[in-house]
């Protein structure tokens, strides 16, 4: 069955206000690492040679970026993490449909419904990831809600734990205030260092930040400005 975005979209309406602070999303039985490694839909995974996930799209939304990355990096396993269950379902269907339409492709991508702000250490080992994406996160304008922002000084510690040395964190937003905030958080964090402009130009992923995700396309359509911050884990002195 070919993939038809719009009809699936209608079946999975958005629930915009999902509290990330409030409830536990699963009664954890401790670590999920092994579960997620095998649940990943790459058939290579079951052949004993267990490959680790290297890219994580936090708050993947409708999965636009993942789909693009999947063909760009066919050898890397990647996962999308999304809090809204309907949206997760949609992405799941989207991946399945793409696999059916393009046999052999899109086997390296999967999606999971989880609260990544709470459960990142349950999914990834130390230094497992080489890229993390935070595209157009919830701005949480009020100061009282700043602690709910997905990029925050304390949560960066956990992202630094999951990323390997040299691993890159990509953030982008169309909200200037949030852009400044994310940049400041990353700038002030001792474990992260900025990626230079030349390196950014050479990186094929950077272009996708603006164009691949649904949210990015919407911003581009409306001619909005975007604010990008790309940092990497500095090698220890």
């Amino acid at each position: 069955m070919p993939f038809r975005g719009s009809s699936s979209l209608r079946r999975h309406p958005l629930r915009c206000f999902e509290s990330v602070v409030a409830p536990p999303l699963f009664r954890s039985s401790g670590t999920n690492r092994s579960i997620i490694r095998y649940a990943h839909s790459n058939p290579l995974n079951h052949s004993g040679d267990v490959k680790k996930i290297e890219f994580a799209d936090i708050g993947c939304g409708f999965g636009g970026l993942l789909i693009c990355l999947s063909t760009l990096f066919p050898q890397k396993l990647m996962i999308g993490m999304e809090l809204r269950d309907k949206v997760t379902e949609y992405v799941k269907e989207r991946i399945l449909a793409l696999r059916a339409a393009h046999p052999g492709q899109y086997q390296n991508v999967s999606v999971v419904r989880t609260n990544s702000m709470k459960y990142i250490p349950n999914y990834f080992d130390k230094g497992q990831l080489c890229k993390m994406f935070f595209l157009f996160p919830d701005p949480h304008f009020k100061e009282k809600n700043h602690r709910r922002r997905v990029i925050s000084p304390h949560l960066l510690d956990e992202y630094a734990y999951a990323l390997q040395v040299g691993g890159v964190i990509y953030t982008i937003t169309d909200v200037e205030e949030l852009g400044d905030w994310m940049k400041t958080c990353l700038e002030n964090h001792p474990l992260f260092e900025p990626v230079t402009e030349e390196e950014l130009k050479a990186d094929p992923v950077v272009e996708l930040l603006h164009s691949a995700s649904e949210e990015g396309q919407k911003v581009a359509r409306n001619g909005g400005q975007t604010y990008r911050a790309v940092y990497r884990i500095a090698s220890p002195m």
Partner: peptide
């Protein structure tokens, strides 16, 4: 959570050594 306690923690303790996960 096991975090490296730096010499001067007033700049923050950012380096996580490990997570002990297993309690349900």
């Amino acid at each position: 959570r096991v975090t490296v306690f730096p010499e001067n923690p007033l700049n923050g303790a950012h380096e996580i050594q490990s997570f002990c996960l297993g309690h349900s």
